[in-house]
Structures are given as structure tokens and as C-alpha cells.
Design a protein around this nucleic acid. Structure first.
Lengths: 254, 254
DNA sequence: CTCGACTGTTGCATTATGTGCAACGGTCAT
DNA sequence: ATGACCGTTGCACATAATGCAACAGTCGAG
């Protein structure tokens, strides 16, 4: 809609791939060097872009700070956090909180396992959308048309033999998840890692977030992990209650 | 330099404070609603801004993804990570890696403590620059003029009784740190938490990053933590060697 | 149920604004 | 010393962003 801003913003994903010099940026934007220079300067003034010692540009520090701040201001996250911690204390495994936004699912909070073997994940990182238990819950709640459309434009990478292979299987799985109100991922992303997940709902019943407990096979079997399902669901419901204002928050008297 | 981009980017920190509607954005930018709308639309197309169900805008998911990607592409981080993990395995405490950029110090990597009592910190979050051990190392390496200028424009919050109170004390501390080549923070940020830190240097000897080991009093005393100093320094030196290309990286034959 | 106030949205004329060009200056390798 | 290369600046031109005013949709009050 706004050409100048559009061009400037296009620089960011470009730099995310790795540092680049002025010429490279200008080329990939299809503009004159001087134009690229001015755009980069403006980005630089706002701290979004950093000029390293070899004169090349890369993404800047303020980007991290912004992402941080934004995350900390998410109210679901704030409300959910103590519940996640408590859940982690009682079961010991890794606990995740995730939201759906613009065709992506991302982790917005995480409490690390107390066991030495941990799974790799990072707050802010997009989730493997076709297999993760939290993603299933979030997508299962989308309007049918949107869900179908999204399912069809997704890629279905075969992380493991148990990964969901195509749109058809995925939609079927989403229907099941939608029906039962919880989801699992049994080795669909990493061969040895299983997850159980439950939805957090807003006052209108829509799923606003999803939380999961993950653990590797070497710590507990899938069956053992499944015994945690009631606890996970209870925790998610507690968060839902607080988020939708049904449960009064202690320390905030009316 | 570029007015349009400048305005558009000014929206981001504004939204980081919390969601805002069109009118508020327009007001705070000092522009007409229609221009604010167009700017927001462009930001939206790039995924930097998200429109929540109540029509208000907040920062979008791609921001996180960008920050993530940028972080993972930092070569210091990539090189350092295995060393940090190894250090954590041998001492058990929280290990941090931080860099300086544009008057801020931020954590770019972290390995969590194996002890149940942990300190709060988050990757990407700006560090308490006046007290953190890693910050001291990074600032101590700045050119004298820049160091002095920065020290004088900083705030000196009194987190604890042992926090550094003013520019004068800070510059003196930086001089010491510069001299000795390592730094500590003994309860200057959180009363019960101590840190030992060492610098990572590039081929030219300049400090490119700093790493630290942190632990609460309840786990080890400050004296005990200090016995780890040689180990921390050796780890930092190992990273320096690899980063500056002196140590060949295994698996990457010449 | 109607009215009015408010917020977001669109089309358009004005001109401020961003653009490409060409020329300059510095750095590095030959 | 020389030339090629990259970043930088000033300027004339026209594109592209701006503010205006009018429209549409939503909500709450009377």
C-alpha cells in the first residue's frame, strides 16, 4: 500500500538470511543504491538494522527488544505463566504455551523440563504446524472454510514415519481433535518425543491458545504421558477461566 | 531520512507498549487517520503488525520470527553454543552469552541451570547494563571517549544496596575490569545472585561478546563461584580462538 | 426503533517526498 | 601509482504519500 515502507520492510527478511552489503540490498530490492542507502539509514536510526564492522548490514538489537516487549505484554501469557510453572512443578516435564496468528503457530511461553534430556524449542519460534499437538488444537478451532484452505496450502514435511503426510490426513486429525477437545503428538516431529495438549478458551468459547506437556520416550512412555491428560486439561481450564474473567484473580479485589 | 518509513517504524515501539486503535496511532504520530491506516496496512502485509479481534493493532508474529532467525544466524552464537553447553554440564549453573550493540547489552544465548532455583532472564532481553558482569566486560572494551559518554548518559537504578550508583563508580569499575580481563556481579542486580564473566575476543583483540556463569547464594557462595573463574576464562578463550579462526573447527576441513 | 456520535474506510487533488542520476571520495588490490 | 569498486552526496523531476471531505458500519442512548 505504501511503496517506500513496503521496500524498507522487505529489507528485514532479506537481512534475516544473513548480513548483506548495500549493493546486494539494492539489487534484491530492484532499486538504485542511493535509495537502498536511505532506507537502510532510516531502519538504522530506529535500531532495526545494525551496521557491523565490515560495513555490512544485519538485523539490529531493537528488533529483539521489541519482540520481547510485545511478548511480555500478551495478557494470555501473563495469566497463564504461573499455571504453567505449577504444572511443571507437579509433573517435571517441559510445558509450552502457543498461539495461532496469520497462518503460523508460535510458542509464546515455555517452562523447561527438570529432567536432563530436553527437547529443542524456543519461544517465538514458529512451530511445526502439521504435527505439533498445540497446532492441531489451534487449527481445529478455525472456521471450517479457513481450516480447509490453510490445510491445503501447507507443506507436510515427513519429520518421522509418524508425521502427518498430507492435507487429507491432517483435516481428519483436526476433526478428531476438535471433537475430543485435546490433542497429542506421538513422535510426529521428533521420533522419541511425545506431547499432550489442551486448549485455552476465551469467554466466547473460541480457542485463544493451547498448552502442552512434552517428554522424551527415555523419560516416560507415551502411555504414562497420557495419564497426565486430566491434569493438563484442568490446568488449561483454569487458565481459560481466569482469562475469560470467570475466575477472580487473587490480589485483584473488585 | 525517509519520512514515510520513519513514521511507519515509529509505530512499532508505540505498539510494543500495548495494543492501540487507529485513532491513538494517528494521534501519537501526529498524522491524519488515513495516513496512519495506510502505514498500518503496510506493516500488516509484512506481518509486523497484527489486527486483533477488537480491531486494535498489536505487534505481529513475524517480528518474533525475524528476531529468531537473526539470532540463529549470529555466528558468535553458533560457535559459542556447544562451549556454553559443555560449561553448563561441568558446573551445572546458568550460562549466558551477551553482546553489545547500540548502547544496549543483550543476552543472545543461555543454558539453564540444572539446579531448581533459577535466575530470571530471557534471550533477547536487554541486560541491566550498569551492574551485569557481562555488560562491564563489553563496555570496558569501548574506546575511552565512547565509554565515558555512555556512562554519563546512563541511569543507575539501585536494584540492591550493592548496585553501582553513578557514572563515576561505574567508570572506575570498568577500568578495573578492563585491566584484569574478567568481571563479576556480586548481588548488584538481585540480592542473592552472583555472576562471574569472561570476554570473547575477535582476531583483532576487540571484545565481541561476553559470557558468564550465574548462581544464587543458596546454591553456592560467591567464593565458591569465584573458583570457577579459570574454567570460565578457558571456555571464553576457546570460543575466542574458534571465532577468530585460530582454532580449526572440527568437521570443516580446510 | 431512531438518532447521533464514533471509528474505520475510500477517492481525489495538491504538493511534499522519495527517486534515479551523475559526480565525488575513499579503500583496497594489482 | 593506478584502476576498479563501494559508499556517499546534491540535485531536478515526477512519482507517490498526504490531508481533506465524504461515506459506511457499529454501538449506545433516548
Amino acid at each position: 500500500m505504501s511503496q517506500t515502507v513496503d521496500r524498507a520492510l522487505s529489507i528485514l527478511p532479506l537481512l534475516a538470511e544473513g548480513p548483506a552489503d548495500l549493493g546486494q540490498v539494492a539489487d534484491r530490492l530492484g532499486v538504485h543504491k542511493s535509495t537502498a542507502l536511505r532506507l537502510l539509514r532510516t531502519l538504522h536510526e530506529h535500531g532495526l538494522v545494525y551496521r557491523q564492522s565490515d560495513q555490512r548490514y544485519r538485523l539490529g538489537a531493537r528488533l529483539f527488544a521489541l519482540a520481547q516487549e510485545a511478548m511480555e505484554n500478551l495478557d494470555i501469557r501473563e495469566i497463564a505463566h504461573p499455571h504453567l510453572v505449577r504444572l511443571n512443578e507437579s509433573c517435571g516435564h517441559t510445558v509450552h504455551l502457543a498461539v495461532y496468528e496469520e497462518k503460523e503457530v508460535l510458542y509464546i511461553d515455555k517452562v523447561e523440563s527438570r529432567y536432563p534430556v530436553r527437547m529443542y524449542s524456543r519461544i517465538g519460534k514458529p512451530v511445526a504446524i502439521t504435527v505439533a499437538a498445540v497446532a492441531k488444537l489451534l487449527l481445529a478451532d478455525l472456521p471450517a472454510a479457513e481450516r480447509r484452505a490453510l490445510a491445503e496450502q501447507l507443506d507436510y514435511p515427513l519429520y518421522t514415519a509418524r508425521s502427518i503426510p498430507n492435507a487429507e490426513a491432517f483435516l481428519k486429525e483436526l476433526a478428531t481433535v476438535r471433537e475430543q477437545g485435546w490433542a497429542t503428538d506421538l513422535g510426529g516431529h521428533e521420533e522419541s518425543i511425545n506431547c499432550v495438549a489442551a486448549p485455552v478458551r476465551g469467554a466466547d468459547g473460541r480457542v485463544v491458545a493451547a498448552m502442552s506437556v512434552s517428554a522424551p520416550n527415555v523419560v516416560v512412555t507415551a502411555e504414562e504421558l497420557l495419564t497426565l491428560l486430566p491434569l493438563v486439561r484442568r490446568t488449561a481450564d483454569a487458565i481459560s477461566g481466569e482469562y475469560s474473567g470467570r475466575t477472580p484473580v487473587k490480589g485483584t479485589p473488585a
